[in-house]
Every structure is written in C-alpha cells, then in structure tokens.
Amino acid sequence: MTESPMTQRAMIIDDSKAMRSILRRIVSGLSFETAEAAHGQEALDQMEAGFMPDLCLIDWNMPVMDGYTFITEVRKRPEWRNITLMMVTTESEQGQIVKALAAGAHEYVIKPFTPDAIVEKLELLGLVSKGVLA
C-alpha cells in the first residue's frame, strides 16, 4: 500500500488470529492500513517503533497485557491523545463498559457483532464518512 498522509491506520489488538482476521477484513474494506498485535504490550511496542494508529480495536481478555491496561497505558501518553480507542470484547456487563469508558475508551462493541456494527461505530466516531460502503 502506498504511503499517503490521508491513509488512516488501525491497530487490531486481539489474542485470537481468527478475530483479528475478521476485524482486519472490515477495516481494510474501509481503506484503513492495518497492523495486528496479540496483546496490549505487543501493540505498545509497535507504536513505540513507529506505527502510529488513528484507531485501536481492543480486546479485553488477552495474555501479557489486557485491553483495559492497554487503554490506561495509552492514556498516560499525551502525544497519543488523538488515537481513537474502541473496545471490541465479549465483556458485556454494564460495569465493565462504564469502567472502560472511564479509563479512556471512546467506544465499545460487544462480541458477537456484525460488520455493520463496526462500520456504524466508526461513523459515530467520525472516522468513516457515511456511505463509504455504498
């Protein structure tokens, strides 16, 4: 993919390769350039190494560093404040959603989801303009 300042980047953080594959197909279809990480620490390492995402899609339960910790780590860094953080997780109690939002997540998608759900949330976040799939 040719580098262009207009290309938005997404970091997909999930310990399941199958789930990363599903999410990659959805956001690639929205013209995002993607990178993948199997846990929060791996994502932080890639970001330190230079892959600066506009959007992170973040699972909650992962080995090494879970998604909640990842969000709190990202929010400690002022230079990363423009990154949009969206949880995509099976954690579905109201309390967990509140906790993630309080820690700095912008949006929250509960697994299972349909591709439309991801697209609509990205529209809400202003990362995708309406009708991009039309």
Partner: peptide, 17 residues
C-alpha cells in the same frame, strides 16, 4: 484451536454477564 477458543470466549463472556 484459535478459532474454537475465540468461539468459547464469546459464548463464555456473554454467559458471564
């Protein structure tokens, strides 16, 4: 194993709630 694991993760997480 990865796909089956993700399946039980999704079902288990929702049953937890």
């Amino acid at each position: 194993a990865d796909a089956v694991g993700e399946l039980v993760n999704m079902i288990g997480g929702n049953i937890k709630s």
